[in-house]
Design a protein around this nucleic acid. Structure first.
Lengths: 241, 241
DNA sequence: ACCTGAACACCGTTCAAGT
DNA sequence: ACCTGAACACCGTTCAAGT
């Protein structure tokens, strides 16, 4: 589909001066990921990306159909890294399928926690996101080893993927104006929420008061893993029946 | 916090002619929800909302701080309806806590499936979304009845909420250009994905081929409930230990 | 084949001014 | 207290033109 083009990779950038900028789909996505990491989805504008690549805002449209595809492909390129990281998991088919499933899910989650913008665009459109499709496939292969029906396999795999990206997206967007302005840290923001919760009427909000101390000191990764284990326990149970 | 204002509610709108438009926070949110239902989050612009309310684009800023808060409050106003619908669930404390939990979760999910835009803004900021907080509280109260530790309660409730809105958001955004253009129906879009999946190499994508027939005929609500039951099975198990 | 520059239509937000 | 109108700064996308 895409032909080889002499991009900025492979040889020193100072070999020849050029009046016109020259990109590649890899360079475009790498630049997009850089901007996303620095300033989130809101910061990824056509003009900001073009400026980083050293060209005009219209040049990007040669590589992607628009901003939406750009975000999808940028997210998927990051998931390619996750795929590499878990390449060996479950390949021999010897270990516990559920443990392997857990390893892959945790790797995905960690990637999204590191990059809060990723949650909203990961695994959105398998038609254009190859790595997303391959991660879905890989998790599904572990589920297949449990000897369930195709319908059960489909439901279980979709549930795990939904839980991973849902939880991660939720945690990633928990900081509203904090990220943008940078005026308040995550700890300060959570502290503010905790203070508000403590001020609620205990008769009306018994549960909130029951867990607020835990919430105040909680770690997102622990919280995710605890939920994932509930889901996997349920899956193991249905595999035993 | 907000004082009573004579809005368009309560009496006929033709009682007195007025040169200036007159809103209320309720009217603003109702208008926002209408637009969101018709054309999604992308369609909710300041100008479109102002036009529907019959005023200038700046008038909205008297009621909300900006577009972000508008979306949060519009989403939360819909969740208020869910809260009313499940008002009686679990109140007597007699039924099975997990069955009650399930009822609430399904009600939430159904509301988001009916309104795909809702997934991205539900339960985002409990500081400004009262109904989201109250739904979280209500689900948590059912979990509390299982006799777990506060930490376990926190983890379980968060997991269920994360699964509900994560899965719902995922399903809500599955139609990229279809919603916007209206040129393709959901069935056609899914059919296209199915055809693509069938064309994949079976040696490389055994799982996809294993489930594609199920995917082709699947129902989102069934899929959600199956996943939710896995999670609830796991929770029941941890309550028995 | 790939990039440029300028333009178009549109958007969120602000603000002085009105009532 | 609440709304208006116009303006500002910015954005995604297009397109004729260049190389």
């Amino acid at each position: 589909m895409t032909e080889e083009r002499p991009g900025p990779r492979g040889r020193g950038p100072a070999l020849q001066r050029r009046a016109r900028a020259s990109h590649s789909i890899e360079a475009v996505l790498a630049g997009a990921v850089e901007i996303l990491d620095e300033s989130g989805a809101q910061g990824l504008t056509t003009r900001a990306l073009a400026a980083r690549l050293g060209g005009g805002p219209a040049s990007i449209y040669w590589y992607v159909s628009g901003r939406d595809e750009l975000l999808d492909l940028a997210a998927d390129s990051v998931l390619g890294g996750v795929l590499v990281a878990v390449a060996g998991v479950g390949e021999d088919g010897a270990g516990d399928p559920i443990a392997d499933l857990r390893t892959i899910a945790v790797a995905m989650f960690d990637a999204i926690v590191d990059r809060p913008w990723l949650g909203a665009y990961a695994m959105r459109d398998t038609g254009r996101q190859v790595h997303s499709l391959q991660l879905y496939e890989k998790m599904g292969e572990q589920v297949m080893r449990l000897g369930l029906t195709p319908t059960q396999c489909f439901h279980a795999t979709s549930a795990i993927v939904g839980f991973v990206i849902g939880t991660a997206a939720d945690m990633g967007q928990q900081l509203p104006a904090a990220v943008a302005s940078g005026s308040v840290t995550r700890a300060e923001y959570l502290g503010g929420a905790v203070a508000e919760w403590r001020r609620l009427d205990p008769a009306e909000y018994p549960f909130i008061h029951h867990i607020v101390d835990e919430f105040a000191v909680h770690d997102d990764r622990d919280q995710f893993r605890a939920g994932l284990d509930l889901l996997l326990d349920g899956l193991r149970l249905s595999a035993q029946r």
